[in-house]
């Protein structure tokens, strides 16, 4: 089935000032569509964590959201450095974030687990030196 709407936001590495704009814009769109507020909140949390992951850990990437009749599919893609051990990265509290990021309250190692917890379906692929791709699906009902 083809999506009804799709939006794509470029995410700049290390930009903590503008980091979060993609999720704000997506939130506005979902509210305009009249998506139930508890679902919007889950999407917000997942998208924000994915966005900040790209800001903190990667060299840059994008977030693409596709909206269907009954669900949203969000792809968070970055151009590296990739995750060597995905199983380890999925553990709560595990983090490779820099001290600066941690001081700002990011990088507590809750990002990936939080994204998974907020979504109905969660997929992650990564290749060291190349990319990381997270795909999540959240249903509207």
């Amino acid at each position: 089935m083809e999506e009804l709407l799709s939006v794509k936001y470029d995410i700049v590495s290390g930009d903590f000032i503008r980091g979060g704009e993609a999720s704000s814009n997506l939130k506005k769109l979902l509210n305009q569509l009249g998506i139930r507020s508890d679902i919007v909140k889950r999407i917000c949390v997942a998208c924000y964590e994915a966005e900040m992951n790209i800001v903190i850990h990667s060299v840059g990437g994008y977030i693409e959201a596709k909206i269907y009749n009954d669900k949203i599919e969000i792809t968070a893609y970055d151009y590296g450095p990739g995750i060597p051990n995905i199983e380890l990265a999925m553990q709560e509290g595990y983090s490779t974030a820099s001290d600066v990021a941690r001081e700002m309250g990011f990088g507590g190692g809750m990002g990936l687990p939080n994204i998974k917890r907020s979504s109905d379906e969660f997929y992650i692929k990564s290749e060291v030196g190349k990319f990381t791709e997270i795909k999540i699906i959240i249903y509207f009902n």
Partner: peptide, 21 residues
């Protein structure tokens, strides 16, 4: 009253999609 939420374009999802386009 959550109905005070006024951001919704339309009560009909498909209409809202059309309007956003």
């Amino acid at each position: 009253d959550e109905q005070k939420d006024n951001q919704k374009f339309s009560t009909n999802f498909e209409n809202a999609v059309k309007m956003i386009k």
